[in-house]
Design a protein around this nucleic acid. Structure first.
Lengths: 110, 110
DNA sequence: CTGTTATATAACTAGTATGTTATATATCTG
DNA sequence: CAGATATATAACATACTAGTTATATAACAG
């Protein structure tokens, strides 16, 4: 679980999430990614570096271009970590005493 | 998808992830959460505020205590958003041309 | 070789995050 | 009521983030 910090942190930025959304349509070069986002090329380049460092994308070299595409590594790690929360939430949902205790204190205290 | 920024950002911090992990075992008060983390109480209180703002936990009032437990809201949103990436990754996995193109450029360029 | 295109890096600024200590508030306990 | 306990808030320092402009590097086109 080495990437978790970097992965969640990378996903916390809306520009980076938008970049990932764009990449679901397929590979894109840096300039192709700069275009839709009203932002300078160095800014996007750094976002890409962050995404790459987090294991969310990979890049290949194609002449002077560096096409990016989605990578599975980080998503897998995140999924595994979230599984813990999902499991606990599912369990709590079935424990009525929690719910009842919450209702009791939210209403009138004795 | 209002919480996405806050949720991913909240999860980016290892202390907050550890708090959530602790909460999978069940409700805990602020002081109970302070204890295992070598950090002051105000620091934990703020982490809890962040987690609550992100929809990752909820708190009830029990006298002078404020027990926290996991909430499903944020996890659901995150899961929905990640579904997009998972889907795209699954699709790309089947597109051999991508893989071949990557292999070609990674080896010898003509 | 020269100019152009694609990308990366450096240096800087402004805003935000995270921790600390000190203090306020509210409930419990005797 | 008085003191103790549980939590929140304020004020502050430090460090990180994300953007900018200017510049470097490297490959392509002619």
């Amino acid at each position: 679980m080495i990437h978790l910090d970097a992965a969640f942190s990378a996903l916390a930025d809306p520009t980076r999430r938008a970049i990932l959304a764009r990449l679901t349509l397929g590979e894109a070069t840096v300039m192709e990614l700069v275009e839709p986002f009203d932002m300078t090329q160095p800014a996007i380049s750094r976002h890409l570096k962050v995404l790459e460092g987090a294991g969310l994308i990979v890049r290949r070299v194609d002449g002077t271009k560096r096409p990016c595409r989605l990578a599975p590594a980080a998503v897998t790690e995140i999924d595994q970590w979230l599984a813990m929360l999902r499991e606990a939430l599912a369990k709590n949902y079935n424990r009525l005493d929690d719910v009842l205790a919450a209702m009791k204190t939210e209403k009138g205290n004795p």
